[in-house]
Amino acid sequence: MRKKVVAGNWKCNTTVQEGVELAKAVNELVATEGAKDVVVVLGTPFTHITKVVETVDNSRIGVAAQNCAAEAKGAFTGEVSAAMVKSTGAGYVILGHSERREYYGETSEILNKKVALTLENGLTPIYCCGEPLEIREAGTQKEFVINQLKETVFKLSADDFKKVIVAYEPIWAIGTGKTATTEQAQEMHKDLRDAMAAQYGQEVADEISILYGGSCNPKNANELFANPDVDGGLIGGASLKADDFLAIINAY
């Protein structure tokens, strides 16, 4: 049975001190009120990871980096390798977010390197995919998003692919206040699972958690998570408020 997952993506927000306080608040709420069958992950800035790992109950809350380098080590000033991420105690890495693709020119070739290094270091990739508004308006979103997977994680062996969490984020809904309708979310998640089944077989496809991201909040999470192929959320702004984040964790 595939896992329910709610992962927060703090993006470029909070100082270390603010992040630790937020992690403390989330940790307390999850311990006392959080749904026991939901995997909770906090995606923090690199500067925060070690402190947040030390702050939370690691048996209940995982910690993710929001990125990692495409190289294992070497003369790459400013980069943080997957091995470095692993050494902090983090267990996950968010990869392929649309902001990384758009602002920092991340290509499928680069992401293939990052996915491989993440897996080699025993980390779980939370792999993002999604279409911009013009693709949605053209009605070609299914082909566009499945191709993002074909160029990257579908190159993995079945055993490695089963270690990946996929996050579908329609780019037009990230930080805009717009959210895909429940029908749009379920349709794309079903298309992605069908593509996984075609690539690896239905048994593998049924094991993969597919998260929805894009203006998911306490008001719409319950409706989104009720869809049979939506297994949780990759949460941006709402993950910066402990009460809102808890409400999403408990939205199943």
Rank of each mutant, 00 (worst) to 15 (best):
F76K: 13
G78D: 09
E79R: 09
V85C: 12
V85D: 02
K86E: 11
S87L: 11
T88E: 07
T88C: 08
G89Y: 00
A90S: 01
G91M: 05
G96P: 09
H97T: 06
S98V: 07
E99Y: 04
E99P: 08
R101E: 07
R101P: 03
E102A: 12
Y103D: 14
E106Y: 03
E106L: 01
T107Q: 05
S108M: 10
E109M: 07
I110Q: 12
N112P: 02
V115A: 15
V115Q: 15
A116W: 00
L117I: 06
T118N: 06
N121I: 02
N121R: 02
L123Y: 08
L123E: 01
T124R: 00
P125W: 05
Y127S: 02
Y127C: 08
C128I: 04
C129R: 10
G130K: 06
G130M: 03
L133Q: 14
E134M: 13
R136E: 12
R136H: 09
G139R: 04
I146W: 13
I146S: 14
Q148V: 04
Q148M: 12
Q148F: 01
L149R: 09
E151M: 13
T152L: 08
T152D: 14
V153G: 14
V153P: 09
L156Y: 11
S157I: 02
S157D: 10
A158C: 06
D159G: 01
D160W: 11
D160H: 09
F161C: 14
K163L: 02
V164A: 11
V166G: 01
V166Q: 10
P170D: 07
I171G: 03
A173E: 04
A173V: 00
A173F: 00
I174C: 08
I174F: 01
G175S: 00
T176K: 05
K178T: 07
T181K: 07
Q184P: 03
Q186I: 04
Q186N: 13
H189S: 00
K190H: 13
K190R: 13
L192K: 04
D194R: 15
A195N: 14
A197W: 06
A198W: 04
